[in-house]
Amino acid sequence: MQKTALIPYARLPRAHHELHVLTSTVDVFGTAHWLLAERVPQPGADVPPFDALVVSVHPDSHVERTELNTVRARWPHLGRLPDGGFVVAASRDRRFEEARQVQVFDPLGRETSSFSVGDAIEHLLVDEAGQIWVGHFDENPAGIRRWSSTGRLTWTSDGAGIPGLFDCYALNVSGTSAWACPYTAFPLVEIRADRPVRVWANRIRGAHAVAVHGDRVAFYGGYGEERDRLALGELTEASVEQTDVGLLTLPDGSAPGRPRVVARGSRIYVQAKPYTAWGVFDLNG
Results as ranks from 00 to 15, higher is better:
H20Q: 07
S91P: 05
F115I: 11
G85Y: 11
V117P: 02
S56F: 12
R110Y: 09
R39Y: 01
G85M: 14
E18W: 00
A89N: 08
L78Y: 05
Q103P: 09
F29E: 13
Q42I: 15
E67R: 15
H17K: 04
L68F: 04
S56G: 13
L53N: 04
H77Q: 13
P13Y: 05
A10R: 13
A99T: 14
M1G: 03
N69Y: 06
P59H: 09
F50I: 11
L36R: 00
P13T: 03
L19T: 04
H20G: 03
H33D: 13
V47A: 04
A10P: 10
H33K: 07
Q2N: 07
L19M: 07
E38S: 06
V57C: 08
H77P: 01
R100I: 00
L6G: 10
L108M: 10
D46H: 09
A10S: 14
G44C: 12
S114M: 01
L22I: 03
T31W: 02
A10T: 04
V87R: 03
R65S: 14
Q101E: 11
S113T: 15
E97P: 00
H62P: 00
D119W: 03
S116D: 00
H77T: 07
P43D: 09
M1T: 10
A120D: 13
L19W: 02
A45I: 11
G85H: 14
L68M: 08
S116G: 15
F50M: 02
P49V: 01
A32C: 10
L35I: 11
Q101T: 10
T70F: 01
G109A: 10
A89Y: 06
H33Y: 04
P76H: 11
A90G: 14
V102D: 00
A37Y: 05
D60R: 09
K3Y: 03
P82E: 07
A89K: 07
H58E: 14
V55I: 15
I7V: 15
A45R: 14
E97F: 08
T25A: 12
A52G: 14
L68V: 10
S91Y: 11
D106K: 02
T25K: 03
Q2H: 05
G84A: 08
K3V: 15
P48T: 09
E98A: 13
R110F: 01
V21I: 13
T4A: 14
Q103T: 06
D60E: 14
A15E: 14
